[in-house]
Design a protein around this nucleic acid. Structure first.
Lengths: 347, 347
DNA sequence: CTGAAAGCGCTTACAG
DNA sequence: CTGAAAGCGCTTACAG
C-alpha cells in the first residue's frame, strides 16, 4: 500500500504506469484487472481498482486498439442523415452496435461520390472493424480496397457489385410493382412515376418495377428521374402533372413525396379525386397530411439490426461466405389512393 | 529503384516499413512525404509516392493518433438522432467537422442518462478532440471529468452547469413567450401547453416562457409535461383537450406536435376553428399538413456550425475563456393559428 | 498469481 | 535533405 503522493495529479491524465506505481504492482497486472482476466489475486485486484478510482484513470483506447489490432468501431456510411429513412436505420444500427460494446462512426456522404471516396479511405486508415454502407456510388473502387484489407462490408439499402460484401436490401422491384398494381387495380390507366436517381439501385429497381407493371398492362410508363430530395420531388411532380391526363402518381421515396405533395397542393389538384397518390417509404407523417398517404413500407429497423448482425457474424468468425438478405415491402392503403371512394370517375 | 518483389502483397496490409523498403528510403522519409513536410528531395518523394501506390498503402491512423496525442475526432452526443431537429444538427455538424479534416463520432443516448454516462466514459478513453453534446442529463459527472481532462465541450441546444463548457443555445424562454403571446393576440384566453421533460432546459424554459406570458395576462397556465416523443405528445394533448374550453394549444417540439395533431384529428377538433395550434420547431412538414402549422423556428444549421466553430477555436488555441452563444427563434404564422380568419368567434 | 520485456505502427526531435 | 532511435500507452506471450 504505497503512501506516495499521487504520481500524477488526479485530473484523469494518469497512465497505466501511474496506476501501477500507485497500486504497487506491475503494469501487466493493472492491464489484467482492467480487462477482466481471471488470473489476478484479489488483493492486487482491489489495490488496482482503488488506484484507478483515485487517479480517475481511463485507459487509452488508441493504444489498446493499436496493440490489439482492432478498433472496435463500426462505420455507417449513408448518403443523407436528414432523410428519416436513414435516420431510423442509423438509430437502430447504433443501438445494435452499442450493445456489442462497439462504437458507431457516422459518415454522411451527401450523395457525393467524392466525399464517399474520401470517407472510405479514411475508414481504411482508421482500421475500423467493419462498414455498413448505403453507397452513393456503388462502383467506388474504395469498396473493393476495403474488402482487400479484410474489412467486412455490408451493403445496406443499396447493393454493390463486389460479391465479397454482404447485403441487406429491400425488394425494390417489388415495391415499384406493388405501388403500380395498386393504382391499376383502382382503375387508373394514366399513372406517372417520380423516380430516384438511376445511379442507385433503389432508384433503378423501383422504376423498373413500375415500368414492368405498366407494360404488362399495355400502358405507357411515364417517369422523371430526380435526386432523393424534397425540391427535386416537387420539380419532377410538376413536370409529370403538366400532362393533365395523369390521374395517378407514385413517388419513389419519402423526401420526394413531400415535395410532390407540395406541388399537388400548389397546383390545387385534389387527392385522390384529381390525382391518386402513392409513396414508397413510410415516414411518421403519412397519416398527418390530408388525406393520409398510401405507402409502401419497409422494415427499416429490422433491416439495420440485421446488417449489424451480419457484420458481427463475420467479425466473430461465424461465417466466411457472403450473404444477401432481401426484405419485402408492405402496401399500406390509405385515403390518398382510394379511388373506390369515388366510383363515379373511371379513367 | 528496387527491383524487389513486393515485400508485402499489395493487398493494403502494407506498413510504413514495407513502403520504406520498397522505395529504398527510411521510414522517416516516408512519414515526411505522407505528412507533406517540405524537407524531402523530389527524387525520394517520387519513389515514396510510387511505392505507396504500388503497395496500396494506407497509414494506420491509430498509430498516428497515439503518437501525435490527437485523434482528430469530434464526438456529437444527441438524445435522439431520429428527431429531425437533431438529424439536421448532426448533418450540419458533420459537414463542418469534415471540412476541417476531422471525423464525427455519433453517440445516441436515447434520453437515457445511463447510456450517456457510458458514452462519456468511452469518449474519454477514446481521447476524442472535443465533444458537442445535447445532454439527456446535464448533471452527469462525466461532463466535468471530460473537462478535467482538457477535452473541450460545447453544450448544444441544452445548457450544462459547468462554466468551463461553451454553449450554443436557443432562447427557449422567448420561444415559449412568443408562441403564447401570438395566441393571446389572436384573442385566445384558454391556452394550454404540451411541455417537454422538466429535466431538460428546452423543456423547462419553453414552459416558463409560456407560464410567464399567461400570468402577465392574468390567465391561468395549464400544461402537461411529456417526453419529446410522438406518442407522449399525443397523450399529453388528449389530457389537455379533455377540458373542452381549451381553444389554443402550444406544443414544445416537433415530435410531440406530430402526436398532438394526431390527437386533434382523432377527436375531430378543427384547426384553427376549435383549437388554434402552434408548435415550437419547424420540420419540413409544417406546410404539408392541413392546415399548415404556425411554428417557432430556430436556425439549427447555423447553430450546429457555430458549435463546431467554438470547438475548433479552442482546439486551435484561439480562445481559452468559455463562450455562450444564444440564438433567437422566429415566429412563422400559418393557418393553424389564424384566429383572424374566423372573426365571428371570440374566446 | 505476477513481472520484465517485446511490440503494435507510426512521428519527431536529434544529429549529421 | 536524410536516417537511427526513442517513444506514444497499452497488451500479451513468456518465464517463473
Amino acid at each position: 500500500m504505497s503512501e506516495n503522493v499521487f504520481s500524477q495529479a488526479p485530473d484523469g491524465r494518469a497512465h497505466i504506469t501511474d496506476v501501477a506505481t500507485h497500486a504497487g504492482v506491475s503494469v501487466a497486472t493493472v492491464s489484467r484487472v482492467l480487462n477482466g482476466r481471471p488470473s489476478v489475486g484479489s488483493a492486487s485486484r482491489e489495490r488496482v481498482l482503488r488506484a484507478v478510482a483515485e487517479l480517475n484513470y481511463r485507459p487509452n483506447r488508441l493504444a489498446r486498439s493499436l496493440r490489439r489490432q482492432s478498433a472496435e468501431t463500426v462505420a455507417m456510411v449513408v448518403s443523407d442523415i436528414e432523410n428519416p429513412h436513414f435516420a431510423e436505420a442509423v438509430r437502430a444500427a447504433e443501438d445494435a452496435v452499442y450493445q456489442r460494446g462497439y462504437r458507431l462512426l457516422l459518415c454522411n456522404t451527401d450523395e457525393d461520390s467524392g466525399k464517399q471516396q474520401t470517407y472510405l479511405d479514411v475508414l481504411a486508415e482508421e482500421r475500423v472493424s467493419g462498414v455498413i454502407i448505403a453507397p452513393s456510388d456503388p462502383t467506388d473502387p474504395g469498396l473493393g480496397r476495403l474488402l482487400d484489407r479484410g474489412i467486412p462490408l455490408v451493403a445496406f439499402d443499396r447493393a454493390i457489385a463486389d460479391v465479397r460484401a454482404d447485403a441487406v436490401i429491400g425488394d425494390n422491384l417489388d415495391a415499384g410493382r406493388a405501388a403500380t398494381a395498386h393504382l391499376l387495380e383502382q382503375g387508373h390507366t394514366n399513372v406517372a412515376f417520380v423516380s430516384g436517381p438511376a445511379s442507385t439501385v433503389t432508384g433503378r429497381d423501383r422504376l423498373a418495377g413500375y415500368e414492368d407493371t405498366m407494360r404488362r398492362a399495355n400502358l405507357a410508363p411515364r417517369s422523371v428521374c430526380a435526386a432523393f430530395r424534397i425540391e427535386d420531388g416537387a420539380r419532377a411532380a410538376r413536370a409529370l402533372l403538366d400532362d393533365h391526363s395523369t390521374t395517378g402518381l407514385i413517388v419513389a421515396n419519402n423526401l420526394m413525396a413531400a415535395g410532390a405533395l407540395r406541388t399537388l397542393r400548389a397546383e390545387g389538384r385534389k387527392i385522390p379525386e384529381d390525382v391518386a397518390f402513392v409513396m414508397i417509404d413510410e415516414p411518421f407523417w403519412v397519416d398527418l397530411v390530408e388525406p393520409p398517404v398510401t405507402s409502401i413500407a419497409q422494415p427499416i429497423r429490422v433491416m439495420a439490426t440485421s446488417a449489424v448482425r451480419l457484420l458481427f457474424d463475420r467479425l466473430n468468425g461465424l461465417r466466411t461466405d457472403s450473404q444477401r438478405l432481401s426484405f419485402q415491402f408492405e402496401l399500406h392503403v390509405r385515403e390518398s389512393s382510394q379511388r373506390s371512394l369515388f366510383p363515379g370517375k373511371t379513367g
